[in-house]
């Protein structure tokens, strides 16, 4: 069950130069009517300050659950974290008291959700909700908090911020609401932002605006950013590295540009092939056969084996580790890993 990547061998928590956030061998389970659903099964990833990690996966892959575990907003019960560590600035957050965690949440780590409308309180003006952050966390006066709210709304490029500060959430369009969410996340200048499908609910022409804004602010504040998405295209321009998840595990890691050109895991490959292209018309789409696994009954060995076109006996018995991926001649490929017994065949044909 141990999956070791380069981060797991890094020195102890007190060491400087460590990444901002480091998730190690995280497991999350849920008790359900049908048994224990293993949503996350040993996830390792890390994010440094100023770095953007994209976590790509379909529903049930565990990408959102991992983020909820980091934020400490998992419903427990039915959720449970039987194993794993989440280091934030070298401290394991899972060992902290509730009070300590609360201080980090919202203050040092902020989260942006997909549905901005339901994340904002409908009966309070956006200015009040933004200002609340400053009043509660920094003890600012009402007047200062309001001025600060307007400044923030300017930062996220909401037109006529001063005039709109007293408007209510429903008076803003979807894109503007998502900007307000970003402003709230930014308010206390956190070290890390986790964005869970931040543009999925938005229209195509607005998606690009919001994603650009997020990337720009991240550079400016030198924050760590975790982008959770199901759409590689959306994050391709802003992410530095990408982790692909399937059935609660990371199956592939790669710098974002290399992933598309040369996927090293059959799942990634199938996923990329099944996206229709804008610039040409195909006859039939490639489709990965079958369905994602039931998390209460994850197949033995590699979880992808029943759907994999190149599965062998070993895939049904041994869980593949995240193997470092190299060039054909053994040359190093920085940051690449694939949890496939046959990664060589996949990437080098």
């Amino acid at each position: 069950m141990t999956i070791i990547d380069e981060t797991a061998e890094s020195p102890g928590p007190q060491e400087t130069g460590r990444p901002l956030l480091e998730v190690r061998d995280l497991h999350v389970e849920f008790s359900t009517r049908d048994g224990v659903a293993k949503a996350v099964n040993g996830v390792n990833y890390s994010v440094a300050a100023g770095e953007t990690l994209a976590v790509l996966g379909e529903s049930g892959s565990g990408k959102s659950v991992t983020a909820q575990a980091i934020m400490g907003i998992l419903d427990m019960p039915p959720g449970r974290i039987p194993k794993g560590e989440i280091f934030f600035r070298g401290q394991d957050m899972l060992k902290m008291s509730g009070e300590e965690r609360r201080k980090i949440r919202g203050n040092r780590i902020a989260m942006i959700f997909q549905d901005a409308l339901s994340s904002l309180n409908p009966v309070l003006s956006v200015g009040y909700q933004l200002g609340e952050m400053f009043r509660v966390h920094q003890g600012m006066s009402k007047k200062d908090a309001k001025a600060k709210s307007i400044e923030l709304m300017d930062r996220v490029k909401i037109p006529a911020a001063a005039a709109r500060v007293n408007d209510y959430p429903h008076q803003f369009s979807g894109g503007m609401r998502q900007r307000i969410m970003i402003a709230m996340a930014l308010a206390l200048e956190p070290d890390l932002i986790i964005a869970d499908e931040p543009t999925t609910a938005l229209d195509v022409t607005v998606q690009a605006q919001v994603m650009d804004l997020l990337a720009e602010l991240q550079r400016e504040y030198h924050m760590g950013l975790i982008l959770i998405t199901h759409d590689l295209g959306v994050v391709a321009d802003v992410a530095d590295k990408i982790a692909v998840m399937y059935a609660g595990r990371i199956v592939e890691t790669a710098p974002v540009h290399e992933l598309y050109k040369r996927p090293a895991h059959p799942y990634t490959k199938g996923l990329l092939d099944s996206i229709p292209r804008l610039d040409q018309k195909g006859q039939e789409l490639y489709a990965i056969k079958g369905l994602p696994p039931n998390l209460t009954r994850i197949p033995s060995g590699c979880a992808f084996n029943p759907r994999c076109p190149q599965a062998q006996d070993v895939c049904r018995t041994d869980i593949p580790l995240l193997f470092p991926v190299t060039e054909r001649d053994g040359g190093e490929l920085v940051g690449r890993g694939s949890a496939c017994h046959f990664w060589k065949e996949t990437i080098h044909g």
Binding site: P159, S173, G175, M176, D203, V204, T205, V206, Q207, A208, Q209, D212, D231, L232, G233, V234, A236, D237, V256, H257, Y260, K261, L272, I275, R277, L278, D279
Partner: peptide
């Protein structure tokens, strides 16, 4: 504008594309 805004995962086809980013909302 709509076509240029479509996120494309392919880095090659993305690099050469012109992006028209519309201002404002519908």
């Amino acid at each position: 504008a709509l076509l240029s805004a479509v996120p494309v995962p392919d880095p090659d086809s993305r690099d050469g594309r012109e992006r028209i980013i519309l201002t404002g909302d519908v």
